[in-house]
């Protein structure tokens, strides 16, 4: 496969995942029904054969008999909705609030709080680039949906080192997320999706690390 195709497909996967975590709508439902996501994933698997797509995300499941659009929306609302989700898809929630040694807040090193250093760094990145994010993300510029999309942008830009830097500092919390999802009994549809994303990110990290090493030698 050519480098350009590889880049393109990786970008697509990030967009796909970001989209799957968002609130379902008719458009994406139809695309899933058509199996667009499976096509993308097949393409990607030509490069990295390790991760199978979870069965529950097979396009056949997105039918009148199984997951209707209405039901999908309900599942999303129960699991990931923005305001009262069962689990938070937010980096700060899973990491120490700040790495600032002089912070005197008792929860400085605790987890579970919004707008930690991680969020502030994301905000800084958006500002540097003149990127705007919707106002309802103000308390969570480090939301996974945004981070996956941001990663797609970096992939498009083509600089592997930047991608590696981002993935290794801002997407290293997915294990905790999966653990939390398990503990809170997240619906299978989304639990499997999170595992899927986590495995993909792990593979990506290895891939980027190796590519950079290769380039160096």
């Amino acid at each position: 496969m050519k480098n350009k195709d590889l880049k393109n497909i990786r970008e697509q996967v990030y967009i796909l995942f970001s989209n799957l975590l968002q609130k379902p709508n008719k458009n994406i439902y139809d695309e899933l029904k058509l199996g667009r996501h499976m096509e993308i994933w097949e393409q990607y698997r030509k490069i990295s054969n390790t991760i199978p797509m979870p069965k529950i995300w097979n396009s056949k499941k997105f039918s009148e008999k199984f997951i209707t659009l209405e039901r999908w929306k309900k599942l999303w609302k129960k699991s990931l909705n923005f305001d009262n989700p069962r689990i938070y898809l937010i980096e700060s929630v899973y990491k120490p609030w700040t790495t600032d040694e002089s912070c005197e807040m008792p929860f400085a090193k605790e987890k579970g709080h919004l707008l930690g250093d991680w969020a502030h760094h994301m905000k800084y990145l958006y500002e540097e680039l003149g990127i705007e994010v919707p106002v309802n993300f103000a308390h969570c510029p480090d939301h996974l949906v945004l981070q996956l999309e941001f990663m797609s942008v970096l992939v498009k830009g083509g600089d592997l080192e930047k991608q590696y830097s981002f993935i290794s500092t801002h997407l290293d919390w997915l294990e905790c997320l999966v653990e939390a999802a398990k503990k809170k009994g997240l619906t299978k549809l989304y639990y499997d999706l999170l595992i899927w994303i986590k495995k993909y990110i792990d593979t990506e990290e290895d891939f980027l690390e190796n590519s950079i090493l290769d380039k160096a030698t």
């Binding site: 989209n19 968002q22 994406i28």
Partner: peptide, 27 residues
């Protein structure tokens, strides 16, 4: 083969692939 991009992040840097961002900024 692609999926319709539903985008939350907007700005000219997106189209350019964030080329304006330095590696130090990402650190």
């Amino acid at each position: 083969m692609s999926i319709t991009r539903r985008s939350f992040i907007k700005g000219s840097a997106v189209a350019a692939g964030a080329l304006g961002l330095s590696l130090t900024g990402l650190d």
